[in-house]
Design a binder for these strands. Structure first.
Lengths: 110, 110
DNA sequence: TGAGTCTATGTCCATTCTGACATATACTCA
DNA sequence: TGAGTATATGTCAGAATGGACATAGACTCA
C-alpha cells in the first residue's frame, strides 16, 4: 500500500509536469511509464468518443468499472497488456455514436 | 499445463501460417497475439544485432536465460509488459515500440 | 569423442495483476 | 432536497506472470 501509493503519485507527476527526472527513473522506465499513460489517455478518449460509460466498457472487456477507472487513471496496478487489450476491444466495438443522434435517425448509424 | 501448451501451439500456428481462424480466436485476441509475436521477433533481432547472448540480455534486464528464451519464443507466459521493457532496455526507441503496440492507430479503427 | 557454448522447455514458488465488491465523490434534474 | 448516474479509490482472494533452477538439444572445435 505504501509502494502502490508512491507509484501512483509518480505517475500523476509524469502526467502533469512530464519532468525528466521527477524521481530517480531510468530512461527506459520513464519511457515505459509514458507509454502506459499515453495508452491510458487514448483509452479514455476512444471510450468517450463512442459515448460509452466505464461500466459499458467494463462489460465489453469483461472487467469491472473500477478497473476501467484505474486503467484510465494510469494506475500502476494495471498492465500494458490490459490497456492494449481494452483498446483493441474498443476499436473492434461496433457500438457507435448513436446515442446522441438516435432521436433523429434510429439505428441507421452504422 | 494443458492450457499453456495449447496456447503455445496456437502462437506457433499464428507465426507460421498466420491463418485468420486457425482456432476460435476473436479478431482482438488474434491482433493481440500478433503484436506479441512482433515484439518477440523484434526483441530477438535487436539482441542478435548487438551480438548478445540470451544470458547477457537476461543479465541486462535482470531476468534469466530461460525467460528470455520464452520471450523470444512468444510463450504465452510472458506479458507484453516484459517484452516492451526488454526492448527498451535493448535501446529500442519508444517510437518504434509504440508503432508495434498502438492498436487503434495501425488498424484504422477510429 | 568430449568439452564448451548457446538456446529451448518444464517446473516451482514468489510477486504482480485482476475482477469484484464496498464506498465515496461529483454532477444533474425534478 | 433527494434520487439517479458516472467516476474514483481502497481492499482482497484468486489468477497470471516472473525469476530461478534443472535439464535437454544443437552446434562447434580440438
Amino acid at each position: 500500500m505504501r509502494e502502490a501509493k508512491r507509484k501512483r503519485l509518480e505517475s500523476r507527476g509524469w502526467k502533469i509536469g512530464n519532468a525528466k527526472d521527477f524521481l530517480n527513473l531510468s530512461p527506459e522506465e520513464s519511457a515505459f511509464i509514458e507509454m502506459k499513460l499515453e495508452l491510458a489517455e487514448s483509452l479514455r478518449a476512444h471510450r468517450e468518443r463512442q459515448n460509452l460509460t466505464q461500466v459499458e466498457l467494463a462489460k465489453l472487456v469483461k472487467s469491472s468499472q473500477s478497473r476501467v477507472a484505474k486503467m484510465e487513471a494510469g494506475d500502476p496496478s494495471v498492465s500494458m497488456d490490459l490497456l492494449v487489450r481494452s483498446l483493441l476491444a474498443l476499436g473492434a466495438s461496433k457500438r457507435k455514436v448513436v446515442k446522441i443522434i438516435s432521436p433523429l435517425k434510429r439505428s441507421s448509424a452504422i
